[in-house]
Design a protein around this nucleic acid. Sequence first.
RNA 1: UGACUGUACUUCCACUAA
Length: 244
Amino acid sequence: VVAFTTLMDALCRAGRLHQARELLIEMRRNGCRPDGMTYNTLIHKYGDAGDISVVCELWEEMETEGCKPDVFTFTTLINALCTRGKVDDAFGVLDKMIKKGCVPNLHTYNSLIGGLIKSNRLEEAQKLLRVMYRKRCEATSFTYNLFLDHYVEEGQFNEAYQLFLQMKRNSITPDIVSYNICIEGLGKAGRVREAKDLFAEMRQLGFSPDVITYNMMIRCYGKAVKVDEAIQLFSEMMDNGCAP
RNA sequence: UGACUGUACUUCCACUAA
């Protein structure tokens, strides 16, 4: 089963959905019973592709084979709905999930918060954050990054920065993604100086800038017509073994 | 008894599919 599932995941990632689904039939023919993970893999990709009808088919196949949908299955579906802006449907799935005795975890909440934010339902997202807290499902930097990105995208850099500080106060260490998002925001706002400071700060804290960080900084300098700095960063990036 | 192998959530760009 593991070998089949691994191959199936690879096919899915390569976008060869159809072959992945054929593989499911193939493995049954070989007397190999697909398990929950196998189905989750397929459901994930079909969900991303927005092919809800196939998702439903797979879901039924799964249940008739005696595989119970688990947190992964539900969260996968919830996430697919959330990224497509169908947040209310996602909450419907959440209800079903809970009724079936399946407990939502951090990933589930993160997906929902992401969906709410994408639909500009910020207050509800914040409300959900409090629900998480009550349920002892602690938000992580991942969760905060969803909010950070939203503020940056809206050009509300002060809000983003406040949140960034708040994270630190709540002893949630910003991760490299948090820094990348903030640097992007500063760059967009033309606040080169501060972007540079943040860039320095992250390195002091032991984060190695990644391709995205460099892209952000280079774009930031480019916008500020500081071509020399941009070029210098570019070569530094290469020196650090970071391929453009 | 426990650990280990395959599946889910966030940031730039490109690619692919429609």
